[in-house]
Design a protein around this nucleic acid. Sequence first.
DNA 1: AATGCGGGGTC
DNA 2: GACCCAGCATT
Length: 379
Amino acid sequence: MSEEVTWTQEKIESFQDDLLAWYHHEKRDLPWRESTDPYRVWVSEIMLQQTQVVTVIPYFNRFMEWFPTIEDLANAEEDKLLKAWEGLGYYSRVRNMQHAAKEMVETFDGQMPQTIEDILSLKGIGPYTGGAIGSIAFSLPEPAIDGNVMRVYSRLFCLSDDIALPKTRKVFDKYVRETMSQTEPGDFNQALMDLGATICTPTKPSCETCPIKNYCEARKTDTASSYPVKKKKEKAKPLYYVADVIRNKTGAFLLEKRPEDGLLSNMWTFPMHEVTKEDYDRLAASYDSVEEKSSQVAEQLSLYEEEKIDIKEKQLLGVVTHIFSHRKWHVLVVEDLLRGTDREMLEKQKWVYQEEFGQYVFPKPQQKMVDLLKKSMNN
DNA sequence: AATGCGGGGTC
DNA sequence: GACCCAGCATT
């Protein structure tokens, strides 16, 4: 499996030249490539972890407007920080970034440090991001090995190591380190990323137009589709919830801040409680269809406000499902018209008018719940 | 080494 | 629905 790189020095240099020539000609025009400012490189690389380029672009531009310098980031309010990240996912990324920004202000004169050891010491910066910042911003000859690069190199050298295993990164580190450009490491690394994103794609790679096809072992043996080798991951575990949409007499909704640890920490939600699959199925069956009920909600609310009738039944707004990497949520979204008055409010709860929702950070499942609510109110 | 942590896409 | 993409921190 993990043997030595057998290329001659001439072949290595020729490979680098061909790849770099392609990159200089074909590189994607992206906002964070306007300069090699370490702060911009850092922000873009953190955003690009697990996230596609098209998604990142608007977030990146707004982030640089809101937090133009490392010091602005270090001093930002957590709410604004989360708002800047709302919808991007993996929210610990932005919390870790602020932690690192504070470290830079305190011990690195407010700047990104310039040695790979210091860069890697910062919170949220691991081997990939450290290599990307080091090579792009400071021309350090460090590899930046992400999924794209492992895909390219697994094909280039027909490497069958399982890329899902942590130890495999070492194998690829060795191959990239021995074949990468020492004079243009930043462009070399970015060339590999662009190649992986546009040519050497997971399915149906465009081998005929590839600038390094003549070096590729997988192309030679027509086995590109067999790489990279990767073991399948577990299916997401299903979890079942009821979310309560509760309104008081002034029309404000009850929102709750999630716990400060764990999934979607410190973000806002309608109060939710977990139920068993059996209870979920039983509850879901006890409601009429969404279509039938949603039109009744508005009508019954107006009656309730006039206190003409006593509503005892909860109304189903709909079902929200959301798949995370490790779990799948099934949420019954229920409008509870009775419990909005004389409530004991918890510390983490707040009454919020719908017009004010934009000021609160809602992760995707909660955005879907808000969409259901809006839909029902339009009926 | 295994797990927790979001969100996007295609077929 | 089933499949694909995927770094870092923590334990």
